[in-house]
Design a protein around this nucleic acid. Structure first.
Lengths: 181, 181
DNA sequence: GTTCCATGGGTACGCTCGTACACATGGCTC
DNA sequence: GAGCCATGTGTACGAGCGTACCCATGGAAC
């Protein structure tokens, strides 16, 4: 019974450590050794639990995407009327959902992988499908898609833009996109 | 006069090779040796022309961002009236500007770097500023920002979504965002 | 034509990497 | 309680890496 023997959460801790490390140094900067050190497991555990870095990354980003879309779904499901749904979207864009720099960085890392490799695109597709389904509880399909794209774009600009956003512009954007004809 | 001696375009060729390689294998997959091989220069030329991988990447992505925003600016400047400007935006989103998978991949790689490191954020900021300036020749500042974000989001979704886009949805989005009140 | 030096070219060193593999441990089955 | 085997642990190896460094080359300055 020496400390770490029989450690059922080990796989999970490795995945968490991997996400933390990717957030810190990027996919470009990770290695089995660094993840092992951060998760406080021996190097051998890496290849025992995961066939390779790719398998580990896919699981890690799968967990990440699920976490984010869970939050999205919950916020949208709390809205009871059109005005509430609009407010929820504004809140998601301006602060609530991607509250941390970490989440924004991880999102971009995932998109970058998805842009190149179909295996990761499955993750982003599932994420997008869930977002759209949540939006379609309140908006027609075309509006839901456009809102989803708008959220995407405004979130990215909020992350990368150093200039202050024009006040009220997010609310205005949601108003225009969801404006009944 | 042995072949390669005095090769004034060498620096440029290295930068081009770097962009090609990043498009192929990602920032995570590059190395001095691989870039040198693709540019057909000896390994020593890498450290001679660039202080390190970071300097090379910054120059490469600087060139890439400038190329894309040049195209954006030109397309927007060709429009002479509101309808033309709207059509230009639709064209930029649906096919023209990010015509190749290569450009989309490189864009995401740049965003990922920018999300983490301020040096790269300067590049994306300059790019965004130019886009907005071009849009402000035809639209008011708030509309220009929202259009810019919409372009961003729809472009990403076009890149990552495997489901076919709803027909006419891009035109509809631009119409709603630019609709005069 | 001599000198100088920016540029090109090759190589060796020390490091980190992923992976393989041999051995240890201890819960579970019987 | 004996044996099995899933899991944990440590180490060694070969490959690829960035970098430093030395020599070669040949246009420019004078």
């Amino acid at each position: 019974m020496t400390g770490r023997r029989y450690d059922p959460d080990r796989r999970d801790r490795i995945i968490d450590a991997c996400l933390d490390l990717v957030a810190d140094v990027g996919v470009a900067g990770i290695s089995h050794r660094k993840v092992a050190a951060r998760a406080d497991v021996p190097l051998g555990s890496m290849t025992y639990h995961f066939a390779g870095m790719d398998e580990l990354l896919r699981e890690a980003f799968g967990r990440f995407a699920r976490t984010i879309s869970d939050g999205f779904e919950q916020r949208m499901s709390e809205a009871t009327d059109l005005e509430g749904a609009r407010a929820a979207v504004v809140a998601i864009i301006t602060q609530d959902l991607f509250g941390t720099q970490r989440d924004l960085v991880l999102t971009h890392e995932l998109y970058t992988l998805a842009a190149r490799e179909p295996a990761y695109r499955e993750l982003t597709n599932a994420w997008m499908r869930r977002s759209r389904d949540a939006l379609e509880r309140h908006f027609d399909p075309v509006t839901a898609r456009l809102l989803d794209a708008l959220i995407e774009g405004l979130t990215i600009h909020r992350a990368l833009d150093t200039e202050a956003p024009l006040p009220g512009s997010v609310t205005e954007a949601v108003r225009r996109i969801t404006m009944p004809r």
